[in-house]
């Protein structure tokens, strides 16, 4: 990953594409812990977005990873609570063994509906409900993983006018999920984790005063 390429990417995005963006949904499966750590340790405090993360984990997982990520990020990382209002500056992680849904009033709901794509939480469900709640002010990101969850939801985000970003499969620990998303969706950007962090930091920070 050369710095030049990084800057080129960032230059192409100079239009104020995400000035009005409010939330980012991130779907990640196998290889997720490392990927999320790389991403969230790089995000800056003034990154003016709410983050909603759906990671495939085993049903019995405890909150260790949530605390771990919280220690490594300047943003506040927590598990998403039922009925909680989504706020900027927070990173919400889907609790294990529940689907995480976004209501139109931008609060969370949980469900124990059947697994979808062999997963609970399922990325598509969160992406689709978020697309409806946030319309074009949403950024969807699909990261490393070994199945095809996420691409359906990413498509919905595009349909609503949001931005679709996928981790460059060459840089992903497990490339199946990003590849699948690129294959099925006309994505806006294919970036490494470091570039995604640059992208979010540069174009979604709190507007400068004056």
């Amino acid at each position: 990953m050369t710095i030049r390429r990084l800057e080129e990417q960032v230059c192409r995005l100079k239009e104020p594409v995400c000035q009005n963006h409010e939330a980012v949904v991130i779907g990640v499966s196998a290889g997720g812990m490392k990927a999320l750590e790389i991403l969230f340790s790089r995000l800056k405090k003034d990154c003016n977005l709410a983050f909603i993360v759906v990671q495939h984990v085993s049903p019995g997982s405890d909150e260790f990873f949530v605390r771990y990520l919280n220690e490594r990020s300047v943003l506040t990382v927590k598990q998403a609570d039922e009925k909680e209002t989504i706020k900027k500056g927070y990173v919400y992680i889907a609790p294990p063994d529940y689907h995480l849904l976004i209501e139109e009033d931008r609060t969370f709901s949980l469900s124990v509906d059947e697994k979808v794509n062999y997963a609970r939480p399922c990325i598509d469900i969160t992406f689709e409900t978020a697309a409806f709640a946030f319309d074009s002010s949403l950024i969807g990101i699909v990261l490393t993983g070994a199945n095809r969850d996420g691409s359906q939801g990413l498509k919905k985000i595009k349909e609503k006018g949001g931005i679709a970003i996928v981790q460059d499969p060459k840089t992903a620990e497990v490339p199946v999920m990003p590849r699948e998303a690129i294959h099925r969706v006309k994505v806006d950007h294919i970036l490494s984790l470091e570039e995604i962090a640059v992208f979010l930091n540069n174009y979604c920070r709190t507007p400068d005063k004056g």
Partner: peptide
């Protein structure tokens, strides 16, 4: 009922 789930 919570709408998102029922709508799905």
């Amino acid at each position: 009922y919570a709408k998102a789930s029922i709508k799905r």
